[in-house]
């Protein structure tokens, strides 16, 4: 029947934030408890393993790899990702699916943390990302859209494309952002001129899909002349994808994220707001307390594994997972 995961231990949070104990005693302990026997994680504790939550957990555990038992848990998670890669180099969203999906980018991101062991798998994953185009990249689609332009309901450019959630569908903000983040951290040898052109088009797509007042939603900035409302989750990933793109056009989205922080209550959005503001130089120490308050809340209605992993990542002062170059690497 309906199972409710236990809320993380709140003892560290109750006395204010001490990162040294808060992350190991709350987030990492929860993640270790929630790990399945196959090494992966489900979206919530007790559910079957899936690629996306496993990728976030591997990243979080690797970020705090000096903790007791953390390396072993991360290695088991890494093993799950190795076993679930499809022959074409991609990863499915759920076991049993035979087609790759957006989860390929987070899986590659997690493999970057283990790139010495995983370079062959990583190259195959990144190559799949570069070679897979969404349905709205096709000439046929653009032709149809041009014919329909007279009664277009949105103002977005149909010449741009990024990445889709699932194959055979259109480009959306989050999968495009994930792919850009991970491709920009990938080996130089993969970045041919065509690949760089692809990345540039996708960056333009993100800017094109930005809401008029800043921030992003899933990818509908205007419909029938009405401005879409931005959301935290896609806004943070898009900002992280664009922060090294050489443009400042995203700044008003950073302003929106900063101005919106007082409205954010959920654990996932709080963690991502902190990640986004910290990464782009607008840290807000009050967010630490807000995150702790979320843990103190006895009715965390939808505790999910990615939200806990993002919280751990948000509390990392090293932020290795966001750096373009891993520690010890020269490029």
């Amino acid at each position: 029947m309906h199972s409710t995961p236990a809320a993380p231990d709140q003892s560290a949070a109750a006395n204010g934030i001490d990162v040294a104990s808060f992350v190991p005693k709350t987030c990492l302990a929860y993640l270790r408890d929630a790990q399945n026997d196959d090494g992966g994680w489900g979206f919530t504790q007790g559910l079957e393993s899936r690629v996306e939550p496993t990728a976030w957990c591997v990243l979080a555990l690797h970020e705090f790899s000096e903790g007791p038992g953390v390396n072993e848990a991360a290695a088991r998670g890494f093993g799950y990702l190795e076993r679930t890669q499809l022959p074409d180099g991609s990863w499915p969203a759920t076991p049993g699916q035979e087609q790759g999906s957006w989860t390929t980018a987070p899986a590659c991101w997690a493999l970057l943390a283990h790139r010495e062991q995983a370079h062959e798998r990583l190259d195959r994953g990144l190559n799949w990302l570069l070679q897979t185009t969404p349905a709205d990249a096709s000439r046929w689609w653009r032709f149809v859209r041009r014919l329909a332009a007279r009664r277009s309901v949105s103002s977005q450019s149909d010449q741009l494309y990024g990445w889709s959630w699932t194959q055979g569908t259109a480009s959306w903000v989050e999968p495009t952002a994930y792919a850009l983040i991970v491709l920009c951290r990938g080996p130089e040898k993969l970045l041919s001129n065509d690949a760089r052109k692809r990345i540039s088009i996708a960056q333009k797509l993100l800017l094109d899909r930005m809401c008029p007042g800043g921030g992003w939603n899933c990818g509908n900035p205007m419909v029938y002349g009405v401005a879409g409302e931005p959301q935290v989750v896609p806004t943070v990933w898009a900002l992280l994808a664009l922060r090294n793109s050489g443009t400042n056009e995203y700044r008003k989205s950073l302003d929106w994220l900063e101005a919106n922080r007082g409205n954010v209550q959920s654990l996932a959005s709080l963690a991502l707001t902190k990640i986004g503001l910290d990464a782009l130089g607008r840290s807000d120490p009050n967010l630490d307390n807000s995150l702790a308050a979320s843990f103190r809340d006895k009715d965390i209605s939808v505790v999910n594994v990615p939200a806990i992993a993002w919280t751990a990542l948000a509390m990392s002062s090293k932020r290795n997972w966001l750096k373009l170059t891993m520690p010890g690497e020269t490029s």
Binding site: Q265, S266, V302
Partner: peptide, 22 residues
């Protein structure tokens, strides 16, 4: 349209009407 379901639930204050949701 939003993968942060907890944020959606908070925005409509469902807990105030239906009690603890966990």
């Amino acid at each position: 349209m939003d993968r942060d379901t907890q944020a959606v639930l908070e925005s409509i204050r469902l807990r105030e009407y239906a009690g603890p949701l966990s």
